[in-house]
């Protein structure tokens, strides 16, 4: 027996026509509640910081653009840039060596990686800082002639700044090499074959065909590395590298305003890492050409978060 249909009542409205129907997404009431709870917690934390006499916001603001802070900031930036430039250039070289058909180059690259990835960066930085204890003099002479081209005490050549650059850059070379090698491996083998068939030499294939395509894969982790590098420059404070952290440490060692001065450092580190993230976004767009949609060409996490449109 079929279920008897409800008897048609003359008062009932006519069913809507299909084109009148509208789809309504799921309402996420939990998200709204969560947003309110998080906002309240954030406001409470902010309030406790702003009203905390040990932080002293006005003191922080007064330190923000003081000479010693800006000078330390400048050195932090220079260290980051120099270490990353050396790191990337050396990384390309090391990656190519590791993938070379030449077993000598492959072995040298393997040992470099083994050493510089196998010891902590902090140890390497301290080591470069105390290089003078291992080799008190650095000199260069033409063998068997006694002609000395160069002879200086190590401490004059390897200043804390040079030691900082050496420590950061030589370590970065090892990590950059692995990122770049991964990028090159991600490029289809057919690309190299097509370029070979055109009569291109290995080095030109690398420069014109493989590396530009590998960049798409290399840029995100390399951006990550650059942000990491900016923060790792703080490690050189152990050898008096005169970076941002060293600069504020020197001052709070005298006036004991530890927290306000650290807040100054935190502020500048955040400004710089935010700028770097922005730069990474543009690089990703640049190297995504010809590949359609990339992560960078989609909405960023922030705009997704505050987007009012519902995504199912």
């Amino acid at each position: 027996m079929p279920t008897p249909a409800a008897p048609p009542t003359p008062r009932a409205a006519a069913p809507p026509r299909p084109e009148e129907l509208t789809a309504v997404p799921v309402r996420h009431y939990g998200r709204w509640l969560g947003a309110v709870a998080v906002s309240l917690a954030a406001a409470a934390l902010l309030w406790s910081l702003l009203t905390n006499p040990n932080l002293d916001i006005r003191l922080v603001l007064s330190y923000l653009t003081r000479d010693f802070v800006l000078k330390g900031l400048g050195i932090t930036i220079v260290l980051t840039v120099v270490a990353m430039v050396i790191g990337v250039l050396g990384g390309v070289l090391l990656a190519v060596m590791r993938m070379s058909p030449n077993p000598v180059l492959r072995t040298v690259a393997w040992f470099y990686l083994w050493f510089f990835r196998g010891t902590p960066l902090l140890v390497q930085i301290i080591f470069w800082g105390f290089l003078g204890a291992l080799y008190p003099r650095l000199f260069l002479e033409i063998p068997f002639t006694g002609v000395v081209l160069f002879d200086e005490p190590t401490s004059r050549v390897v200043t804390p700044f040079v030691a900082a650059v050496l420590g950061l850059a030589l370590n970065e070379v090892a990590y950059a090499a692995e990122i770049i090698r991964g990028g090159m491996l991600s490029v289809d083998r057919g690309q190299t074959e097509a370029a070979q068939a055109l009569g291109m030499r290995r080095i030109r294939i690398l420069r014109r065909i493989v590396l530009p395509q590998a960049m798409r894969v290399i840029v995100p982790p390399m951006g990550n590395d650059t942000i990491n590098m900016l923060k790792m420059t703080a490690l050189v404070s152990v050898i008096g590298g005169s970076d941002l952290l060293t600069a504020v440490q020197n001052v709070y060692a005298q006036n004991f305003q530890v927290i306000p001065l650290l807040a100054v450092a935190v502020f500048w580190y955040l400004v710089l890492t935010s700028l770097l993230s922005l730069g990474q976004h543009h690089l990703e767009k640049r190297f995504g050409r010809g590949f359609g949609e990339t992560a960078a060409s989609r909405d960023g996490a922030l705009s997704r978060l505050i987007s009012t449109k519902e995504r199912l």
Binding site: D188, G190, E193, A194, A197, G199, R201, Q213, R289, F291
Partner: peptide, 24 residues
């Protein structure tokens, strides 16, 4: 390599999977 690439320049090749350079 120098002499091999010179020989290849005289020979055109078309692949099953095209292998165009996607960034160009």
């Amino acid at each position: 390599e120098r002499e091999i690439v010179a020989q290849r320049r005289e020979i055109g090749m078309v692949f099953q999977r095209f292998n165009l350079f996607p960034h160009l």
